[in-house]
Design a protein around this nucleic acid. Sequence first.
DNA 1: ACCTGAACACCGTTCAAGT
DNA 2: ACCTGAACACCGTTCAAGT
Lengths: 217, 217
Amino acid sequence: MSTEEEAGTASPARRMRADAVRTRKALLKAAAEVFAEHGTEGSVAQIATRAGIGKGTVFRHFPTKEDLLAAIIGEVIDGLVAEGRRQAEQTDADAALLQFMSAGVDLYVSNRAFVEALRTVPDLRHPEIQAGWEQLIATAESLARRARRDGSLRADMNGQDVMLLICGVYYTAVPLLAADPSAWRRYLHLTFDGMRATGTQPLPPALFQGPLLPTVR
Amino acid sequence: MSTEEEAGTASPARRMRADAVRTRKALLKAAAEVFAEHGTEGSVAQIATRAGIGKGTVFRHFPTKEDLLAAIIGEVIDGLVAEGRRQAEQTDADAALLQFMSAGVDLYVSNRAFVEALRTVPDLRHPEIQAGWEQLIATAESLARRARRDGSLRADMNGQDVMLLICGVYYTAVPLLAADPSAWRRYLHLTFDGMRATGTQPLPPALFQGPLLPTVR
DNA sequence: ACCTGAACACCGTTCAAGT
DNA sequence: ACCTGAACACCGTTCAAGT
């Protein structure tokens, strides 16, 4: 978590004054905490107070609240991508895919802002988030490909499906999570059964193979 | 749609002055439109303007914005319950369940406020919504029971699962809906395959059989 | 009894004034 | 170069004043 390179998160311009570097670090830490706890609705004032800085300073570092959110979410995405790559080295392709999806749903449960941000991927036009999302799809696709080859995943499932389904499983369980934070497991297993189903009708086609957002349409 | 009994929506106290009845009707109409278009975030000012009344008047009829939302959502729920009962009369139990779920997802797609409200069912402590939700579960359960009996639905699926999965399917497809409003069909079919899966591991247990919110825990 | 709009405490955002 | 807090246009909500 904190073993990454420090300070340079999303590399702001070049060469900052020492005090600004400190301020920025405190800001990012506070924002990460507030967003994880309160979701996207956590207020800028709340973040500023927790970081011990003025409200105006937040907007000096990030032009909008959304930009700040994107910086935080970018890091969370990186973490999930890393998890996917770790799973890709496992021998059992089926288990690797399931464990990747479990990690994803679990992350959603523990970080409200993460799902809220990803759900609005088409709206949030942040290159960092778009790039992160495509990395996630690529990672998921590599896991899916292996599982397809050894027959544990149906032929018409791709990486984008995997990512979208992680989100769907989370939302399926949302109303139950307050009472039981692991209620999502039931629906992940159900979904996974659907993903391996054989001898059924072929699914209606997937929309996009590559990037989530086409320029046309 | 407008063939229902007029004016009495959620029966306010007793005997209103004629002008108040007119105001209330305009308010409910405006609120239904604004919420469907803009989701929960549609503003009270927007609704008041569209209804041609003052902002304060909104709060005279409904103590909070949430109460107004609940009145609107209550009606939408009734519509879906009716659809479920219609499907229950169909001979093919499997098709009835699938068509009920299709109608549900489709409703979510066309009415943003509806999903947003249902997702927060545990938070929204409105008896009307709670009651409506339980009616939905009961309706879904009657469809599920028939499908379970004739073997087209796995034995460990219940009505609550059905309702939660409708929501999940919607959210799975959310990022694609702007580009293709029927993208959810792919995931509904996948989910449905999971729901009929046989010869697989039993699912982790369901949390609650009856009402969604236990008093304990 | 019913409606209204000004007033309040919030929100994200801007910016002149300070160091 | 960097930070700050007052000021702005919003938000949901309250309430004294009008009919």
